[in-house]
Write a protein that binds this DNA or RNA. Structure first.
Lengths: 192, 192, 192, 192
DNA sequence: GATGAATGAGTGTTCATTCAT
DNA sequence: GATGAATGAACACTCATTCAT
């Protein structure tokens, strides 16, 4: 993949930040342009349409997640440790860059998420398949499809992050410890 | 709660169905009206605004979930069976009425989900608190906050249903058995 | 003229009061109906349309003015006294029932004021013609058309009332004495 | 004050013309746009809303009146001549551009005429205060507040213009000479 | 490439009027 | 006669997109 042009990246990041606060439909192209410091028309030099921009944002955001999680994995460690690293890295990313999580949630359930995009190659998905397959092969994880382990884990991280982001007050006031979900999820996927 | 007027319910169901396919912003009031077989202006006899309609839809959808799940619970059974019933009932509801799950996911992350609505009384949440507390008290579930068990379970059901709905082809072609998530989730919440 | 039906009068008065505060276009038929204590549809038993209602209101309001001013005129007094009585009566009416003045102002410059309505018989105009003609015949008023004297006087009263109603604060704070306009207007119409 | 952008002025003049014939509420933004030869959305490049447009129109119209009347005043002439020039200039302006008078009348009694706008600085009002004060100081006008002289005069001009505009046929057929109102008004304000 | 004024289809909402009860 | 739910045309305003500069 060729590196993203400077101004294009500027627009993507600007859009990402705004979408978190206003949602897809609360972000006119003009707002994204202004926030990125370019004219409205300029966006169309880099993207065909708003749909296109959001589609590219999906791959952009996914690559950030992929790089963050896979880049921090150390295959020389024991698998349980690697799993908790995985969990913590992803959790941390969502905490540091809530706009990424927010974008993903919105995108996955939006009409922008076309069948075409779903079927596109995904290094992130491939990496996960390999990761969980390794755990299976080592006899540490349940002997199930790596896909289902991935679904279990990613569902839990997302659920946790969503609660952390949207119900922070309630979490605090009731003293809920969201980190316990990592342990629980480990028990869900490990060989019993 | 007084029963919902016939036409009001018609509009709510019509809206629910359309939102699944087009999203909040892809559903003009005119489309919802047409689909419900009423004139555009008629919606405003029953709802103050689109925001109001969607807000009411939230309580409507939540009550459907609540009734479906709590109504099928049999407290005389052993807790593990009750859990799998819970899971299956919710899973079934999401399968039969995907528009309910879809609406919920969209609503939760949308600007319609105001703090006011979040803080409103929720029989569904209360029922879940009691349900999981019972499992804890019986020494069957982990001794954690019932809230966190709820988050774990609901996250898994949602994740499963989302995959089932959006990636049905891939699930079939790879022979993924999503029911395994129920077992995994049970292992996540049961006392180890 | 036959007496106005009880409910019809109720609607007219209700409309008059609302129009003062909200203007023609700020008064939906439903608001007028509610304010009159009848159902929206009931208005159409008495009036063909909103235009019709407003048209009738014009004649209704004009008859109130006519009755008030002509009914208090005492032809046995000297003409100057009669003029000041005229002025004071009209001024008083506008003060007591600002909705009448307000309606008139709005009506005169609105598209409701059709040529047809303008050409309708007007006891109020006839009475004024006679009144000012009398002053001319007695050699007290300028020897001009009674119409022009009427225009002069009615313009001054309206101007005064408008200022009194819309700029009451400024009038008070600057100590403006609006009654002086009566004297001035008298000097404008009397034989020099 | 910076000069008004070409297209903005086009829209203002177009609106002014239409409001005379249709009233504020009879003029959709789309009609104003079409009449100005621009797209509906273009209006919003120059004005925030219809309210804003009408508010600006008020200042625009007032400045036209101010420029026309004050620009033709020659302080070296004797005061009576200056008064008749004032009257004639204003009368002439209202004759040439009836839309200005019409707009003013509608605006003054409409909800657009907010307290805020009423309290705004007004070169037109200030100029009038000075003008009439001069007449008082010279011992030519009645020794009253310049405000009340202003009210008297402006009321007469408006009354005359309104009659001239709305009842032109009747005025002609009855041979009414509206210019006589200038003389009458002079007698109303001059020192007796 | 960059700009931002202009476009106009599309949206939520209002309200005069109708008509079944 | 009285009701008020239902209607649907009309409106103010938004915003993705274009294009002359």
């Amino acid at each position: 993949m060729e590196p993203i042009a400077e101004k294009k990246k500027l627009i993507l990041e600007s859009a990402l930040a705004l979408i978190k606060d206003h949602g897809f439909h609360g972000c006119p192209m003009s707002m994204m342009a202004k926030n990125a410091g370019v004219a409205a028309g300029t966006i169309y030099t880099y993207f065909d349409s708003k749909d296109d921009l959001i589609g590219e944002l999906f791959f952009y955001a996914k690559s950030i997640i992929f790089n963050h999680v896979s880049g921090s994995d150390d295959p020389s460690l024991d698998f349980k440790t690697r799993f908790f690293n995985y969990w913590n890295n992803l959790s941390e990313l969502y905490l540091d860059r809530p706009e990424i999580q927010s974008f993903f949630e919105q995108f996955m359930i939006s009409p922008f998420n076309t069948r075409e995009i779903q079927n596109a190659d995904s290094p992130w998905h491939d990496w996960n398949s390999n990761f969980f397959q390794e755990g299976i092969d080592k006899g540490i994880l349940r002997n199930l499809s790596p896909d289902i382990l991935f679904i279990m884990v990613i569902g839990s991280v997302n659920s946790m992050s969503k609660v952390r982001q949207n119900f922070s007050e309630k979490v605090a006031e009731r003293g809920i410890d969201l980190n316990q979900l990592a342990e629980m999820t480990w028990d869900a996927i490990r060989k019993q």
